[in-house]
Nucleic acid binder design. Structure first.
Length: 482
RNA sequence: GCCCCUAUCGUCUAGUGGUUAGGACACCACUCUUUCAAGGUGGCGGCACGGGUUCAAAUCCCGUUGGGGGCACCA
């Protein structure tokens, strides 16, 4: 059996879309599973809509996901001559012909066909041009495109996801393969490249099913056996609409910036339209590679479920060890200016690790560490209004805080065991529930009603900060009572 | 308008003629507990509809409906 070669062919008109990312992943998984090659091809023939910034952003996203491509990336913009050569061959073999119709005229015809509720197909005006007529038009310098001649018949192919698919050629118009500016159109460049790059399996979105028939006709016209095709159903939003900006994040970079881990994205995307067959869902990349097969790809459109993605990210966050997790949280703290520079971190590394570890069970995204853990890094936080109402209005709370502050201040070892024992003893003396001290102190030191266990939190925060913050809270309570 | 794809809990899915239709997310309850999480236990909830084929249909066939995609000198 010949070598498995697949490709991902993004067009650099935007960031890497999650849909494209999933297609890339399925290609990559298939390649790895089959011991094949994963090729990257940039489809930038539309120079107006392509940019080099987007190209590097896309490469970066693919690498972030760990979808490393084999061989050098190919750029279609550098291969325009190849497409022209191929188009000449089709012309010579009478499989294609020059078309002098202007885009404006074609638009008009399409429009009136639509009005007449008829299928908008090219009327083959230029197919019947005589040699002399063509000479005449050429002499006048009329721009000409090249159209592929679609013969009568029917094309059938076996899709690896959808099974046998067929299409009448009467449904396909003579499509343009080379624009009048000499640049190949998508369908043509795609086929030429897939031929040249010896692509064995084309795995792409469902939206290309109708292109597949055109492309198979091109393969046949070139006398080349077409590759295998597998079309993946498109990802939808929860309203079963196309994944668009309105839905929220659509590019991989946005998920990265929100604090999703690449391993989460890979696992989650893999499960969108594919399942291993058993009940496992948390699957490391290695397992995905081992288990992946196109036969198991579902043929119906999956919905992108953000809640499940969050859950899964939490699972992956909790899989990381102290050091790894801290490493990943640091960029987010830096971005929010909660820690200053790499140098300063290195001194605080041990403390930082403790903070991260305290928060980790409550975090689903790396950005959660910033929001839930803010008070560890700065005094600049407000008390949650609702909680103030409840906790700072407890009877004699200012007095209690004062006494607790005094006792905690005199503690020899400021550790969680001592802190807890002291607080509970004090509550006993006062004959109140420990919770009636614990919660107000929580608000005092963090401003929040939620968070890690109070005593470990206070220990990590340190004596100085804690006493300071209790003072601040007492003042606040006294002001409340005025 | 024409062509194509598609249909199991709200969502992701397992299931390939005979299952009490399984799992996960979400949701609810209970539990643990200083809060919130995390964890544990339990629960709610599904074969779109109508015809066939068959002893037997979620599973095969046809239609309807719903959803998605495509019909460019975009990719």
């Amino acid at each position: 059996m010949s070598e498995v070669r697949v490709r991902i062919a993004p067009s650099p008109s935007g960031y890497l879309h999650v849909g494209t990312a999933r297609t890339a992943l399925f290609n990559w998984l298939f390649a790895k599973n089959q011991n094949g090659k994963f090729i990257l091809r940039i489809e930038d023939t539309d120079s107006a809509r392509s940019s080099s910034e987007m190209i590097s952003a896309i490469l970066e996203s693919l690498q972030w996901l760990g979808l490393q491509w084999d061989e050098q990336p190919y750029h279609q913009s550098a291969r325009l001559d190849i497409y022209r050569d191929y188009s000449q061959k089709l012309l010579k073999d009478n499989k294609a012909y020059y078309c002098y119709c202007s885009p404006e005229l074609l638009d008009k015809k399409r429009e009136s066909a639509k009005q007449a509720k008829k299928a908008p197909r090219y009327d083959r005006t230029c197919l019947s041009l005589t040699e002399e007529e063509r000479e005449e038009l050429n002499k006048k310098g009329m721009p000409k495109a090249i159209r592929f001649f679609v013969s009568l018949g029917k094309t059938v192919y076996h899709d690896l996801v959808h099974g046998d698919l067929e299409r009448e050629h009467s449904e396909i118009e003579d499509f343009i393969i080379l624009r009048s500016d000499g640049v190949a159109t998508y369908n043509f460049a795609c086929v030429v490249d897939d031929v040249e790059m010896r692509i064995s399996h084309i795995i792409r979105g469902d939206d290309h099913i109708s292109n597949t028939f055109k492309q198979i006709l091109l393969y046949q016209a070139l006398g080349i056996e077409p590759p295998q095709f597998a079309h993946l159903p498109l990802i939808l939003t929860k309203n079963r609409a196309k994944l668009s900006k309105r839905f929220g994040a659509v590019s991989v970079t946005e998920y990265r910036d929100e604090g999703y881990l690449p391993e989460t994205m890979v696992n989650f995307l893999a499960l969108l339209g594919w399942a291993p067959g058993d009940d496992r869902e948390i699957l490391p990349k290695k397992e995905l590679v081992r288990l992946f097969s196109l036969e198991k790809v579902s043929s119906a459109n999956p919905v992108f479920d953000l809640e499940k993605l969050e859950w899964m990210n939490g699972e992956y966050i909790r899989k990381l060890n102290k050091e790894e997790l801290t490493e990943r949280v640091i960029p987010f703290l830096l971005k929010e200016n909660l820690i200053s520079s790499e140098e300063e971190i290195s001194g605080k590394r041990e403390w930082l690790t403790k903070v991260v570890w305290l928060l980790r069970e409550r975090c689903h995204k790396l950005t959660d560490f910033v929001h839930l853990g803010r008070f560890f890094f700065t005094d600049n936080f407000e008390y949650d209004a609702e909680v103030v109402k409840k906790q700072f209005t407890i009877e004699n709370i200012a007095t209690h805080l004062q006494e607790l502050q005094k006792r905690w201040g005199e503690l020899k070892d400021f550790n969680k065991e001592n802190l807890e024992k002291l607080l509970r003893d004090f509550a006993g003396e006062l004959n109140i529930k420990p919770a009636n001290l614990i919660h107000p102190v929580r608000v005092a030191v963090s401003g929040l009603s939620v968070g890690p266990g109070l005593f470990e939190m206070v220990e990590v925060l340190g004596r100085e900060k804690v006493l300071e913050r209790i003072t601040r809270a007492i003042k606040y309570v006294n002001r409340l009572n005025l």
